[in-house]
Amino acid sequence: MMRGLYTAATGMNAQQTNIDMISNNLSNVNTTGFKKSRANFQDLMYQQTRQPGTPNAQGEEIPVGTEIGHGTRMAATQKLFTPGSPQSTDNPLDLVIEGDGFFEVVRPDGSTAYTRDGSFRQDSDGRLVTADGHPLQPEIYIPEDATSVSITSDGTVSAQMAGESEPNQLGQIELVNFSNPAGLNSEGRNLYTETVSSGQPMIGVPGEDGFGTISQGYLEMSNVKVVEEMVDMITAQRAYEANSRSIQASDEMLNTANQLRR
């Protein structure tokens, strides 16, 4: 059986995975804080029929060898944490991180997760929570009689209370960062969790020690660029077609061999 049939099949499988990644990116083009993924591929093992440097019959050294590859495979899927464009919402509880960092939230089972989605709101107790009800850490409570809420670039939360001339400070928003954000585990629902590859979480104040600042009344849109994804999709489709043509050519060669007669 011709080796090229299986080699081209690995190429078709790789491009199918590539299309899967592109489709997910495009489907989340309007997801707040979404970070696009990229499929990384690597070539498979090679069959070497002659090693470089092997002496020929005359004892001379052969400068190059003979090796035949066996296709490609997906090596990893990588999250790209380039910033998305901020969008004005005029909602005082919408926050965007301008720079590096994540918001820390607590899930119902008590585990910690991290997000770039700053679309917060109040629960029945006045806590700042995500759309799924996960409270922001450290917890911030907004009193019922607060007439306005102000959040500065360093994460200081203040509220103007009815009948008072000076605003009251309610708390401090902290950010979390990792030495390797691409190593975080994507949990869905705009949440990430820590892994061994991501490193330990580093907690800090917005605007200090390399952490980004916070802007109130904005949300970070996804970093997906539709035009780039469409170009990547066309490239993947053409590569898929080229690999299918290789299979067709191999099949035609086998058919020709089968038609040989003595």
Rank of each mutant, 00 (worst) to 15 (best):
I140N: 07
I68Q: 13
D154T: 07
E104P: 04
G99V: 00
Q122A: 07
Y141S: 15
L93M: 12
G101W: 01
H70K: 11
P63Y: 06
P92F: 04
D100Y: 08
P108I: 01
L95E: 00
T77W: 02
V129A: 14
D123M: 04
T77I: 09
E104I: 00
D123K: 09
R107S: 05
G118I: 00
A76V: 01
P52F: 06
Q51W: 13
V64R: 12
T152P: 08
D125T: 03
P52M: 07
K79T: 13
A76E: 10
M74P: 05
G71D: 01
D145Q: 15
Q122P: 02
T54W: 06
A76G: 08
S85A: 12
G133C: 11
P108S: 12
S88H: 11
G59F: 11
T112S: 11
T152V: 05
G118K: 06
M74R: 14
R107E: 02
D90C: 04
T72Y: 03
P135T: 00
V96E: 03
L93R: 01
A75L: 11
G118Q: 03
Q137I: 01
R116K: 15
T89W: 10
G101V: 00
A113G: 15
D123R: 06
G118Y: 01
T82R: 05
R116S: 09
T147L: 14
M74A: 14
E61N: 09
K79L: 15
G133Q: 10
G101R: 04
T152D: 14
A57P: 04
R116P: 04
D109T: 01
R121I: 00
I151N: 08
Q87Y: 11
P83E: 09
F102Q: 08
V149Q: 14
N56T: 07
V129N: 08
R50K: 15
E60S: 15
G69Y: 07
D125K: 13
T66E: 11
H70D: 01
G126S: 14
V96K: 04
P92C: 10
G69C: 13
Y141G: 05
D117W: 02
P135G: 08
P92I: 00
S153C: 10
G110I: 02
G126T: 01
I97N: 09
D125V: 02
Q87K: 15
Q58M: 09
L80K: 09
T77Q: 10
D100H: 10
F102E: 02
P63D: 07
G84L: 10
P108E: 03
T115R: 12
N56P: 09
T82I: 03
